[in-house]
Structures are given as structure tokens and as C-alpha cells.
Design a protein around this nucleic acid. Structure first.
Length: 890
RNA sequence: GGGCAGUUAGCUCAGUUGGUAGAGCGCCACGCUUACACCGUGGAUGUCACAGGUUCGAGUCCUGUACUGCCCACCA
């Protein structure tokens, strides 16, 4: 194994000094790379491949943190774990990035270069940049198997794409059709419905009148938000039942500006109550109009070029940009008296998610996936629970979308991407699909060699949908595929359930006959401090590498994991990251304290050796018991995907219980001079800390590994240490220690309240008989932690007369007198006791009321009622003792 | 138009089988106790958005309302 050179422990934790070294240590020892082993259970998370074109943002950091936390947890549980990394070629944005670069440097377009040359350039760019984000993933500590890293344009995934395309094509599930599609004039390609955003805008609703042919002075007034499209109008539609227009059905209108005759048609799709009740029909440029046109056999006139300028069908407007044309059309209509009115109108406009410009609906021939045969099984998988969502509510989001799904347009008019593996025959005109890398040599129908390939490429999400199995070698029957498919958990953000998750399920079932993962864990979005979505344009992004540099990788990860709940957006604040950094430093110093004083031959204390024995000192029994509780809780929470809550529990345990109480208490025995006691204590210190570090490792991999290496241990590394199993608790010890804690807190509190200057105060403790032994045995804890003057401390269960010049502190197990001779202000003490009595009385009243309710006593579970009775008795005793004391102060 | 979340201490948020509200930060007061000032000790602050209901008991379940955010949807 590769050695991990460890320096002396510094006074504060320095992430920079450890992170890179440990990552290398883990990776070089092969712990990220699972070996196929039939006797072990595989656990697989295929990482969502980030786009090559962008650096990682904190959202990625969060997801990678979640993925790696589950991965590390299962690895420690003994599973054969694979976290598979990859990169996506990012279709449109990949192409755009390179286009811009070439334009900037050479003032050339991709058309100037030609397909082959442009592709060559893209590949050059990709080869240079596709490994850049690897370093970021490493910096975040992801324990992924780099030997299996995949790029969506690698030969494997390329083959997978061609293969599934051919399968679907041959079965008629991929087809070509002319339909109205979303054309993005910015990217000059078709995009799918999911890539269209509806953006609210203030626009206008223009009312235009169309003269009725042959009826001088009669018009139909239509309303439109896009007057320029009238150039392509081939009809006007009204509702069949609309009395206003009934006599006009079938009549002809004269289209203004174009002087074309267009018919009035009656169609159910028109809303009578909206606008004027009459709709201009532009089948070439509007989805609804397209349908109406189909129903009434209206001609389709395309008036736009690919860049959304008006084409030769636009009369005098030919060559104008669509927005220029709009102005001009409105102006002309107004001048010619056709414009009735212009109303301001707030509406939604479809924008291209890719280029951030309004899309243009166009009628075009494109490739489609006939989706129902794929979506129905994917739907079924969610219905019957073969695919579960965390949180559960997203199941409905998923199913509702699939229930209403439309065919998927998969062709893109781009160069960069998976090219459609279909060849056209110039001889017979038929199509040949092929999965071969080189394509077919002849038309499969007429054997002609005169064939050429479709120029388009596929939607990026087409290849992404194959990711869970294309990464493992499909369609080849590889060992990886047989062993690691299906995966376990798919972790991603909820905004790509449709774009990605649904398609993986569809393709997974189609190609493999089995769902690609049993659980979909959905992270929320990470927002900035104000709760706004982070984006480069707003400039409010947090660079994970900067956060890592400032606070450390563990701090960033711990913050992201503990400040969020699955599926809920989280705000990232620097103070939270500082908290987490402080936590890392806290456990660093706790370990430093423990490790510093250990004997050289100190044996390892594995968690399974943490067994409570009756002869152990109380603090040992207490902390071990608390530790076992923690193990059980944390394990349960992680199994239920509640990483945040699990992380918080570990934080509280280590900071509050282990550091503040156990370590402080342990100092007594460490300094006692008794070597046997010292060693016994050290064993518990080491054992509990080591076990807790195991629990914390998935959350803070770097510090925990580093600290673990500094403690006595068996095994090579924490990353491959065994996940602890909970042992037996000792509830009696927990109760006793709590009694001690209560006493200590009371004294500390009293000292502050009475403004005692001296560090140590005298005390007399009158215990209940059953607590006498406890207080006597743990005398040193009281002295040290509460700050009691050792020489004066008297512990008895038989105190004939209470000291007069003393504060009296009443706990459940004892009354503690602090004889502050001369310092005690009687008036103040009476007031204090009065307040305490009042508080205790309130408790008594509350409990009494509950217990007086027969319904509560009869119907509530026995333990709940019992607990309430105990509370009542304790409170009553408290009131009584406080009153007695108050009486003596008169 | 349909759907889904959120609304808890000054701030950021936890609170998953309904048992009577927590953490961190911030604030106030102390404190260099030989691991840690990236620290320790103590303290203050909440009709858990609002209105009903179910229940012995509701921050937690049901109904409705308000505000905020998100998703889906072919009203020109």
C-alpha cells in the first residue's frame, strides 16, 4: 500500500496540508476502484455527467457531496461500491462555445469552415477541456473510479447511441415527420418542448380588421400579439356557435397588406370570449393554428428564414427581421386603416432555453421518438415502486408528466453531437439505419451504393438517457454491465426529472428490460444568501474551489449536506461554512488532545470493543451508551436518505457530549497518576472518537481520515474501515450522568448569577438517599466541572441544618448549598427562589391538569402517562424544597 | 388554468411513525481551567402565517384563507 506520510499534528486543522495528499493516498491504493466479486453486493451510483463547457458550481458540489456520502457509507458497510464519473459533450452549448471562439479569433463561422473542419476544431477544444472539471471533483473529495471515467462522445457511448437508434428505428419507434416544431433562431436548430421557457412579458394585443370579400364595409376583427405573422395567414377561425359570425362561415376575407383571399372557418378550438372571438390562422407559425389548418385543409405558408427574418413569401417585408417586420406591418396597417386598436397586454412568450431568444414555431421535417411504448413501462415502474423517489412527492411530478407526454423531437440541426445513423438512397429514396461505426456501404433496400447520411445530430439528452448502461459497455455484454447494472441510487436535481430521469428509466427498461436504478434521490437547488437562483449572468455564483480554499473541502461539504433536506432548496451562507470549518477544527483538537498523551504501545480500540461493563466508571458507561445511541440513529437516518439530520446528530454528539462533557471529565482520571485508570480512560477516549470518526467520514472525508490515521487503529485507512453497528446501551448510566450534569449546570449558573469572582466555590450537597453513592463516587466531576472548592465539599444524605448564608440549588437528585459567606444578598436570593418556585409551580399545574384528564390517563400510552407522573412528582418535590428554603430565609 | 412546496427565536434553518419546540450565527455577561479564542461557561428571545376540524394531546394529520416561490399548460 502507498504510505500516507503524516506530519505532526498542528495546533489548528489545515485542510490545504491534507486534502490533496489524502486523495492521492486513497486513489493510489485503489480504494475507488471496485473489483468485480460475485460474493459481494454491488452498490452503484452513476454520477450525472457535468457539461464539458462549464466549471462546477456549488450545486454540483452539493450533489457530488451527496453521491460521495452515500458511496462512502456503503463502501464502509462492505458493499462493492462504484461511483462512476463522466462528462457530457453538451450538444448546443458545446457547439456554441467553439463557434464563438472561432469567430473571435478568426472571424469565421462554422459554415465557413465546413462540417469536417469544424468538428476537428471542436474535438481539439474538447481534448483540451474535458478533463478540467476532474480536478474540481477531486477537490471535493469524491471517491469515484477514475479508471472507468466516460465521456458521452467516447466510442462506447457512440456505439450505444447508434445501436438503440437502430433498434427503435427498426421497430418503427423512431420516425420522420413534418410538424410544427420549436425553432430556435439563436442556435439555428429545433429544440424540444422541455427546452422552451415561458417568459412573462408586457406586449400588445393588436386588433386588425379583415374586410369581407364582396360585402363592402363589413369586416372581421381579429386580435393578435404577433401581427407580422399575418403575412402567412391562410384563414380566419371562429367558434361554430358564435352568433356574431355564423353567417360568415365559408365566406372569403381579403387579407390586408397581402391582398390574398382567405376563408372563414368554424373551429371548436376557438374561444368565443377571448379577444374578438375571431382568430387569424397562420398554420406555418403557430401550433394551434397549425392544428386548425390541418382540420380545414388550409395551406401552410412559411414566411420565415432560419434566422427568423421574413422570407420571399413576405411580400414587401422580405428580408426584415421578425421584430422589424412587426413594426412595419403595424405601421402599414394603421396607415391603411386596418388597425382598430392597440391594447397593452401582459402575456407569456416562449423563449429558447438555449439561446435566450423567443423561439419561432415552424413547420419542418424532423425525427421523432414515438414515446408511448417507452413511457408506459416507465410509468408502470413508478406505479409499482420499482423506481422510488426521495422525497416521495416527486413521484407524482414524474407520473403526471409521463401520463401527458408527447412525442419527442430528437433531431438537432447541429454538427457537434451524435449524428443520426440513417442513410438516404439516391436511387430508391429509402432509408437505411445502421449501428456500424462506418455506416452501411449500400442501401439495404436496393443495394445501391449511392447513399448519404442524414446531416442532423441527436438531442444531447438522447445519449444522456443511455448513461446508466452505455457507461458500462452496452450494447456489448461486458462483465461490468452484468455486474453493475442496474444501479442503486440516481442522485440529481429535481429540475431535470423530465429531461433526464424519465428518459433514463424509459431507455433502461427498453434496452435492458430492467429499471436503471431503484431510487431517485433529488437534491434541492443551492441558492445564494438572498435565496436567488445562482447564475453566471447574475454574478452571484459561489465557486466551490474558492469555498474549498477558504474553508476546506470538508467544511463546504458538511455545510451543503447539513443545511439541506432532500428536494428543498437551500441557501448557502459563509457563516455556515465557517461553522463547519470550526467543527473540523474542534474534532482536530479533540483528537490532538487524546493522541498527544497516548502511550507509544497503545493498542487500537475498534468500535466492537466498546462494550459497557458494570465495573466501568460512570462517565465511560455514559459516553459509550450515548455513542451506541448515535450509531443506531445515524445508521437509521442515512438508510432513510436523511443525511442532513444524521450529520447534525454527529456534530452535536462530538461537540457537546464528547468534547464538553466526556473529555472534560476524563481529565480527572488522566491526571490521577493511576496508570491503570489512565489507560482505561484512554481506551474509551480512543474507541468512542474512532467510532465517531467512522460515522462522520461520509460527511467529512478528509479530516476524519487524517485524524483516524493519527489514532491507534487496525486496518489501512478509514475509507475502508467497517461501518459501526450499535451495541447495548446503559440507560441507568445515562440517567445518573444526567443527574450529575444537572447539578453541575446549576452550580455554574448560580456562580454567574451571584457574580462570584472566585473560580472555585465552597459547596454542601444534600442528596436524596438513593443518590448519595452517585455523588460521592463522582465527587471529582463536581469539583472539576462545576468549579467547587475541593476542601469544602461535603456530600451527605443527612443534613440536620441547612447553612444559612448560602444559595440553595434544587435538582431532582439533590439540593446544593453554596455558602457564600458575606457575599449572599438575601433579598436577591429570595427573589431568585421565588422565580424558581413560580416556574416549578407552572410545571406542576401543567402536569396536574393533564393527569386530571381521565381521557389522557386512559387513552394515552402507558409510558407517556408514566413519564408525566414522574414529571409531576419531581416538580412537586422541587416546589416543596424551594419553599422550605425560602421559609428559612425570612 | 392546473399542480407542488415554503411560511418555526433578530438571521439562516432542523424538527418522518402526533406526546407538549431545537441548533448555529448574532446579542448580553463572565472567562487565557496545561486540546481548541476556528475556544469555554452562563443568559435572553417563539399565540411554530391565519381560521376551523380530527384527537386525551397537533409545528407534526384534515379543510379552508393569505402571502412567497417553483413546475406544468396551444387562449390568439
Amino acid at each position: 500500500m502507498t504510505e500516507n506520510p503524516k506530519p505532526e499534528m498542528a495546533k489548528a486543522y489545515d485542510p490545504k496540508a491534507t486534502e490533496e495528499r489524502l486523495y492521492k493516498f486513497w486513489e493510489e491504493n485503489g480504494w475507488f476502484t471496485p473489483k468485480i466479486d460475485k460474493d459481494k453486493t454491488p452498490y452503484v451510483i452513476v454520477m450525472p455527467p457535468p457539461n464539458v463547457t462549464g466549471a462546477l458550481h456549488v450545486g454540483h458540489a452539493q450533489r457530488i457531496g451527496v453521491e460521495d456520502a452515500f458511496t462512502r457509507w456503503r463502501r464502509m458497510c462492505g458493499d462493492n461500491v462504484l461511483l462512476l464519473p463522466g462528462v457530457d459533450h453538451a450538444g448546443i452549448s458545446g457547439e456554441t462555445v467553439v463557434e464563438r471562439l472561432i469567430w473571435k479569433e478568426e472571424k469565421k463561422t462554422k459554415n465557413d469552415l465546413g462540417r469536417e473542419e469544424f468538428l476537428r476544431r471542436v474535438w481539439l477544444w474538447m481534448d483540451k477541456y474535458r478533463d478540467v472539471i476532474d480536478d474540481q471533483i477531486r477537490a471535493l473529495g469524491a471517491s469515484c473510479d477514475w479508471t472507468r471515467k466516460v465521456f458521452t462522445m467516447d466510442p462506447g457511448p457512440q456505439k450505444a447511441v447508434r445501436t438503440i437508434f437502430k433498434m427503435l428505428f427498426d421497430q418503427g419507434l423512431i420516425y420522420k415527420a413534418e410538424r410544427i416544431v420549436n425553432w430556435c433562431p439563436g442556435s439555428r436548430t429545433v429544440i424540444s418542448d422541455l427546452e422552451v421557457n415561458m417568459v412573462e412579458e408586457d406586449g400588445f394585443l393588436w386588433h386588425i380588421r379583415y374586410p369581407v370579400k364582396g360585402e363592402e364595409g363589413r369586416y372581421i376583427t381579429v386580435a393578435t400579439t404577433r401581427p407580422e405573422t399575418m403575412l402567412g395567414d391562410t384563414g380566419v377561425a371562429v367558434h361554430p356557435d358564435d352568433e356574431r359570425y355564423k353567417d360568415l362561415h365559408g365566406k372569403m376575407l381579403i387579407l390586408p397588406l397581402m391582398n390574398r383571399e382567405i376563408p372563414v372557418v368554424a373551429d371548436e378550438g376557438v374561444e368565443k370570449d377571448f379577444g374578438t372571438g375571431a382568430v387569424k390562422v397562420t398554420p406555418g407559425h403557430d401550433p394551434l393554428d397549425f392544428e386548425i389548418g390541418q382540420r380545414h385543409n388550409l395551406p401552410i405558408i412559411n414566411i420565415m428564414n432560419k434566422d427568423a427574418s421574413i422570407n420571399e413569401n413576405g411580400g414587401k417585408y422580405t428580408g426584415l427581421d421578425r421584430f422589424e417586420a412587426r413594426k412595419q406591418v403595424v405601421k402599414d396597417l394603421e396607415e391603411q386603416g386596418f388597425l382598430v386598436e392597440t391594447k397593452p397586454y401582459h402575456h407569456t412568450v416562449p423563449y429558447s432555453d438555449r439561446a435566450n431568444v423567443p423561439i419561432e414555431p415552424l413547420v419542418m421535417m424532423q425525427w421523432w421518438v414515438k414515446i408511448r411504448p417507452l413511457s408506459d413501462p416507465a410509468l408502470q415502474a413508478a406505479y409499482d415502486g420499482r423506481v422510488k423517489f426521495v422525497p416521495e412527492r416527486f413521484t407524482k411530478v414524474y407520473t403526471q408528466w409521463l401520463e401527458n407526454i408527447h412525442d419527442w423531437s430528437i433531431s438537432r440541426q447541429l454538427i457537434w453531437g451524435h449524428r443520426i445513423p440513417v442513410w438516404y438512397c439516391r436511387n430508391c429514396g429509402k432509408m437505411t439505419a445502421s449501428a456500424e461505426e462506418t455506416g452501411p456501404t449500400n442501401c439495404e433496400h436496393c443495394q445501391s451504393a449511392d447513399i448519404y447520411q442524414d446531416p442532423d445530430v441527436l438531442d444531447t439528452w438522447f445519449s444522456s438517457g443511455l448513461w446508466p448502461f452505455s457507461t458500462l459497455g452496452w450494447p456489448d455484454k461486458t462483465e461490468d454491465l452484468a455486474y453493475f447494472y442496474p444501479g442503486s441510487v440516481m442522485e440529481t436535481a429535481y429540475d431535470i426529472i423530465f429531461l433526464w430521469v424519465a428518459r433514463m428509466v424509459m431507455f433502461g427498461i427498453y434496452a435492458m428490460g430492467e429499471v436503471p436504478f431503484h431510487t431517485v434521490y433529488l437534491s434541492g437547488l443551492v441558492r445564494d444568501e438572498k435565496g436567488e437562483k445562482m447564475s453566471k449572468m447574475k454574478g452571484n455564483t459561489v465557486d466551490p474551489l474558492e469555498a474549498v480554499a477558504t474553508y476546506g473541502s470538508d467544511a463546504l461539504r458538511f455545510t451543503l449536506l447539513t443545511s439541506s433536506t432532500p428536494g428543498v432548496d437551500a441557501k448557502l451562507s459563509p457563516t455556515r461554512m465557517a461553522d463547519s470549518r470550526n467543527f473540523a477544527n474542534k474534532i482536530w483538537n479533540a483528537t490532538r488532545f487524546i493522541a498527544l498523551n497516548l502511550p507509544a504501545d497503545m493498542p487500537a480500540v475498534p468500535p466492537e470493543d466498546l462494550i459497557i461493563k458494570v465495573e466501568m466508571p460512570l462517565p465511560d458507561r455514559w459516553i459509550i451508551s450515548r455513542y451506541h445511541t448515535l450509531v443506531a440513529e445515524v445508521s437509521r437516518l442515512i438508510e432513510n436518505y436523511q443525511l442532513g439530520e444524521a450529520g447534525r446528530l454527529i456534530y452535536d454528539f462530538l461537540w457537546s457530549e464528547f468534547c464538553d462533557w466526556y473529555i472534560e471529565a476524563s481529565k480527572i482520571r488522566l491526571n490521577s497518576g493511576d496508570e491503570a485508570k489512565k489507560l482505561a480512560t484512554q481506551k474509551v477516549l480512543v474507541g468512542v472518537l474512532e467510532g465517531s470518526l467512522r460515522l462522520l467520514h461520509p460527511f467529512m472525508p478528509f479530516v476524519t481520515e487524517e485524524l483516524w490515521q493519527n489514532l491507534p487503529h487496525t486496518g489501512e485507512a478509514l475509507i475502508i474501515a467497517k461501518w459501526p453497528t450499535p451495541g447495548k446501551r446503559d440507560e441507568e448510566a445515562e440517567r445518573q450522568f444526567e443527574a450529575l450534569q444537572q447539578a453541575v449546570r446549576e452550580v455554574r449558573n448560580a456562580k454567574v448569577e451571584a457574580k462570584v469572582e472566585s473560580k472555585r466555590v465552597p459547596a454542601i450537597i444534600a442528596t436524596k438517599p438513593e443518590s448519595l453513592t452517585l455523588f460521592q463516587t463522582e465527587r471529582e466531576i463536581l469539583i472539576r466541572l462545576a468549579g467547587i472548592e475541593a476542601g469544602s465539599l461535603e456530600i451527605t444524605d443527612n443534613l440536620p441544618t441547612a447553612p444559612a448564608q448560602a444559595m440553595a440549588l434544587v435538582t431532582n437528585a439533590a439540593t446544593i448549598y453554596l455558602p457564600l459567606s458575606g457575599l449572599l444578598d438575601f433579598e436577591q436570593e429570595r427573589t431568585r427562589l421565588g422565580k424558581e418556585i413560580e416556574e416549578a409551580r407552572k410545571e406542576v399545574e401543567k402536569s396536574e391538569a393533564m393527569l386530571a384528564n381521565p381521557n389522557f390517563v386512559e387513552r394515552a400510552p402507558a409510558p407517556v402517562v408514566g413519564k408525566e407522573r414522574e414529571k409531576l412528582i419531581a416538580a412537586q418535590e422541587r416546589v416543596q424544597k424551594l419553599q422550605e428554603r425560602l421559609a428559612t430565609l425570612v
